[in-house]
């Protein structure tokens, strides 16, 4: 997902911010990357708790009502452009957003998943967690390229492409990695959204983990999401990663 070595713009937002502000900044960086052929951008950020849903989720019959109820309960609902399903974020998750405008011929979504996933797996390995890309039955926002550790979902990846008539594709790839445990059960939040919105999907308990849980007694004290953010940024810088 990257055309060279020096034109990759990496922006890190280590402080927890409002999710709408973070997504606005993300979109600005994405659009800038799309405007320059061969350029690429990576934005790494954290936000207050929110539920990020897809455009398909937003077409559920009672979406507006579900969004109102969840916002009143402290879970603002925002619509993202990438695929999958509802994914809850909170200060203990780290979000990665990569974007580039690239020649479309021969490029595949599988390669893009591998390009974004490999540095994240490496960053997790640096903490001592053996993770890989795979699928966890019953997990929220489930896919074949989720980040899996110990049979549970530790993170998710998703994409948004737009073809153009000049042979290029505008490619966005996003990931969220669960570093810290949330104050609230995340599967309950996702199931409440789909129940309220009139969707059929329900996720299963016990399908999600976190970096802290995987580390167990070996987990360091302090802000593990901040540590993951910095560790991942170092890996991305050394890799010049998104070369698909």
């Amino acid at each position: 997902m990257h055309g060279g070595g020096d034109d990759m713009r990496i922006v890190i937002a280590p402080d927890v911010r409002a999710v709408d502000a973070a997504m606005t900044e993300q979109q600005s960086l994405v659009e800038r990357a799309f405007a320059e052929p061969g350029a690429a951008a990576l934005f790494i950020w954290r936000a207050e708790q929110a539920l990020l849903v897809t455009r398909q989720d937003a077409r559920l019959p009672a979406f507006e009502r579900a969004a109102r109820v969840l916002e009143a309960e402290g879970w603002p609902v925002l619509v993202r452009t990438s695929g999958g399903g509802a994914f809850p974020v909170h200060p203990g998750t780290v979000q990665f957003a990569a974007a580039a405008r690239l020649p479309a011929a021969g490029r595949s979504i599988d390669a893009i998943y591998d390009a974004l996933g490999a540095p994240l797996i490496e960053a997790l390995a640096s903490f001592g967690v053996a993770a890989g890309l795979g699928e966890v039955a019953g997990a929220f926002c489930r896919g074949r390229h989720d980040i899996v550790a110990g049979g549970r979902k530790l993170g998710g990846l998703a994409q948004h492409w737009r073809s153009t008539n000049d042979g290029a594709a505008r490619i966005f790839a996003g990931a969220s990695v669960l570093a810290e445990e949330a104050a609230q059960n995340l599967t309950d939040v996702v199931n409440r959204f789909y129940t309220l919105a009139g969707g059929d999907f329900r996720c299963a308990a016990g399908t999600v983990t976190s970096l802290r849980r995987e580390l167990g007694a070996a987990a360091p004290t302090g802000d593990l999401a901040a540590a993951l953010l910095q560790r991942a940024a170092t890996v991305f810088r050394s890799h010049i990663p998104l070369a698909a």
Partner: peptide
């Protein structure tokens, strides 16, 4: 953009 394809957690928008 005239259509949207969904595959493997990817939204793929197709231009006319």
């Amino acid at each position: 953009t005239i259509a949207e394809i969904m595959v493997e957690k990817t939204n793929y928008e197709i231009a006319a």
